[in-house]
Design a protein around this nucleic acid. Structure first.
Length: 759
DNA sequence: CTTGCAATGACTGAT
DNA sequence: TCATTGCAAG
């Protein structure tokens, strides 16, 4: 058992204790994936049938990598029998198998967020509600969190608490939207992301035989990233593991960053109550990062109140200090970071793939893309608009969806008039009204017009009829010809390919290329299926909705600089990590400043970012940044101040006295010259444009210089208000402890904190 | 019904 | 800044 030798005692214990309920608390970089991998391999080596193992991971890519690794260790081809993947992909498969029990077709469509939002928009309109009050995104998140807590539309309506809540917030009819949404999804034979978990719960609740079957199939259940599971997922796991209680959950409460998706840290905290006879293993040794990075990360996370006690430590070398870079604008931030990468490559001989630029929001990628491109540094962006979310791809997929499942309402609405065939808004409205009058799907109305009189003029009827005929002609071939032939037929005969080919603009060309890329992907899929079988298009469609950018790693992307959000970086590691846009209102996000728990989640997010770095971490912020078309000034993030300053190296000093003066004005004019002729401030909205920020700086008083600050002085801080200096560190002082009546004791780095001395 | 232009609002995060 | 929506004219 060679593989056991490479483990430390805690890791080994977590690997070999395969029976019973087990919780592994795994600090960042502590070899969590390794433990999970070896544990499964160990079980199989000791006679457990892979068929009896269920392993739930956070991404499909992680599942694939783990499976490959297990296959390597145990040899043979057994590993492929393990049920491994994300909750969504594993249970969507199970749901398809038993769909009839829930009244769904087995080829039900999976609605992505765009589809859900569009359906909600339509419903709000049909109910004649004001879409300013009933904002689709808000309603969607409300419905989503209801589903994640297993509250159906009927239960929602009956729940006086939530209904009152909606009434208080001016949305008394929200439950009607939920009710209609639930019904329409069902009519369309569609499930949204939350349904995949919700309906699994229903299936296991209402069908004892199914529950019994899977309880005995999955004798061993393993869950990775348990801190990011929501109630719905928690309950599925609990039900499945109830027969054998061979359940192993792995997680780190300090890395819980998905509460917006309903994730509940309580799940990990309550594990011990759910399983009385359980074992806990703590992995605390970090193998990934330098001491500097580990200690800095620890000093940050220590600020959080809600956490399981543990001490992450490392044997690794001390390493370089964490660099802190200040730039004047977001564009300069991009240039500076790109130059740093360029130099690190030359100096250390590092590969492109050793670098990652991590940001809080997808919109921040632009300045880095531009500057990297100028230096000819190859990069790859993850997240943002994924391939499968592009308009042209979704259009073609909508044809595929409609062919497989004609009741799919969102797919129908998407392509009924694309490419243009003269079916307009009024016609579609009539179809929708008729469908809801008869309680049938849109497809039934248009495919049997004589049965459902809709008052559509005969001209439009002819066009609709032609559309129905073409979809039907695809449908009869669906299970006869292979996926690629089918896809190609549809792409050509629907007119999509021609429509894009005719568009000679650069965007049009790239859209055409994307379609070709999708088709060749389908071709590859068709060819990789085993001998003697045919891969149908419906097989390809099964998990297309669940694919993400991260799941496909292309060969040509092997040696590239990685650009991604911190959320997307979970579980990854890079020698050099640049955490950028560390500014108040951006990171932490202004939306998270209202409550302690939200701020703590932002802090955990920062912790995750920092602990991605193996060798060198660099933090960066800009004093002003383009947002919504105008320039906003920004302050360095509080998270920089929260790191023990001994671990930091300031690359350039802020110029304290120049903030309100000439410099920012010059900067401002420069940006203006480069930009458009638009008015300077389209007085649009909040987020202090520069000219509003200035009055906040009173002319009187002095800016705190390190030298003249003394214990006992009264000071004013921009965020915390008045306070008194109670402690100073360093000579000259670099860090001050200040007591603020409003905010309590705060440790402030004098390099960042703009303290004004009052006396 | 389609086209083109002006007005508008959006930026967390992602299966 | 960008993408979506509303409106007027053909």
């Amino acid at each position: 058992m060679d593989y056991l030798k490479s483990l430390n005692p805690e890791q080994k214990a977590a690997v070999i204790n395969t029976e019973g309920a087990t919780m592994v608390i795994a600090g960042a970089g502590s070899g969590k994936t390794r433990v999970l991998t070896y544990r499964i391999a160990h079980m199989i080596k000791n006679g457990v049938d892979p068929f009896n193992i269920l392993a739930l991971t956070f991404t499909n890519k992680a599942a694939k990598e783990m499976k490959d690794r297990i296959a390597q260790i145990i040899g043979g081809s057994e590993a492929k029998n393990i049920s491994m993947g994300t909750f969504h992909s594993v249970f969507s498969r199970i749901l398809r198998h038993h769909a009839d029990k829930l009244g769904y077709p087995s080829n039900f469509t999976i609605y992505d967020t765009q589809d859900s939002r569009s359906l909600i928009k339509a419903i709000v309109k049909e109910l004649r509600l004001d879409d300013k009050t009933y904002k689709p995104n808000l309603i969607l998140s409300r419905i989503s969190s209801a589903k994640n807590n297993l509250i159906s539309a009927a239960a929602y309506e009956a729940n006086t608490d939530v209904v009152t809540e909606d009434r208080m917030s001016g949305k008394p009819r929200l439950f009607e939207v939920y009710r209609a949404y639930e019904k329409r999804c069902f009519m369309a034979g569609a499930m949204d992301f939350d349904d995949l978990l919700f309906k699994t719960n229903i299936l296991l609740r209402d069908h004892a035989d199914v529950l019994h079957y899977y309880q005995h199939k999955f004798k061993y259940v393993l869950v990775d990233e348990y801190q990011d599971t929501n109630y719905s997922q928690y309950l599925i796991v609990k039900k499945l593991a109830a027969a054998y209680t061979n359940i192993c959950v792995v997680g780190d409460d300090a890395q819980s960053i998905y509460s917006f998706r309903g994730a509940n840290i309580e799940n990990i905290l309550n594990f011990k109550n759910d399983y009385k006879d359980h074992k806990v293993f703590k992995l605390e040794q970090n193998y990934r990062s330098t001491q500097t990075i580990v200690n800095a990360a620890n000093s940050v996370i220590a600020k959080n109140k809600d956490q399981i006690q543990k001490t992450v430590w490392t044997d690794n070398t001390e390493g370089n200090k964490i660099k802190v870079l200040r730039s004047l604008t977001d564009n300069e931030e991009g240039k500076a970071i790109s130059n740093m990468i360029f130099e690190a490559k030359n100096h250390d001989g590092a590969a492109n793939s050793d670098f990652a630029i991590l940001y809080r929001t997808n919109a921040q990628s632009r300045s880095f893309e531009e500057s990297l491109r100028k230096l000819n540094l190859p990069y790859k962006i993850y997240g943002g608009l994924s391939f499968y979310q592009r308009k042209e791809i979704k259009d073609l997929l909508a044809y595929f969806r409609l062919t497989a499942n004609p009741t799919d309402e969102e797919a129908l609405k998407r392509v009924i008039n694309y490419p243009k065939r003269g079916i307009g808004k009024t016609t579609i409205e009539k179809i929708i009204i008729t469908a809801s009058q008869h309680g049938v799907s849109l497809w039934e109305v248009i495919s049997e017009p004589q049965k459902y009189p809709s008052g559509i003029p005969s001209g439009a009827k002819t066009k609709l009829n032609a559309f129905v005929t073409s979809i039907n002609s695809y449908a009869v071939q669906l299970e006869k010809i292979d996926a690629y032939s089918m896809a190609e037929t549809i792409a050509k005969s629907s007119g999509i390919l021609k429509d894009l080919y005719d568009d000679k603009s650069p965007e049009g060309v790239s859209r055409h290329e994307n379609i070709q890329a999708l088709l060749s992907g389908i071709k590859e899929f068709t060819e990789t299926i085993s001998e003697g079988e045919t891969a149908f298009l419906s097989d390809f469609m099964v998990d297309v909705a669940l694919l993400t950018d991260a799941d496909q790693d292309k060969e040509e992307d092997k040696d590239k600089i990685t650009l991604m959000t911190i959320h997307a970086s979970k579980g990854l590691e890079f020698p050099y990590v640049y955490i950028v846009g560390l500014e108040e209102n951006l990171f932490p996000s202004q939306l998270a400043l209202n409550s302690r728990s939200e701020l703590e989640e932002e802090r955990r997010l920062f912790y995750v970012a920092l602990t991605r770095a193996e060798k060198q971490a660099t933090l960066s912020y800009a004093s002003s940044r383009f947002r919504w078309g105008n320039i906003v000034t920004s302050e360095p993030s509080r998270f920089i101040e929260e790191i023990d300053p001994n671990h930091l190296e300031m690359l350039n000093q802020p110029r304290m006295n120049s903030m309100g003066g000439g410099r920012s004005m010059n900067q401002f004019n420069m940006e203006r010259k480069l930009g458009s002729k638009k008015p300077l401030f389209s007085d649009r909205r909040r987020l202090t444009p520069v000219d509003e920020a200035k009055p906040k700086k009173p002319a009187k008083g002095t800016t705190a210089q390190q030298l003249d600050l003394k214990v006992g002085y009264n000071v004013v801080h921009e965020r915390f208000g008045k306070g008194k200096v109670v402690g100073l560190e360093g000579t000259p002082p670099t860090k001050a402890t200040v007591f603020f009546p409003k905010a309590g004791n705060k440790q402030l780095l004098l390099k960042f904190a703009k303290l004004e001395i009052l006396d």
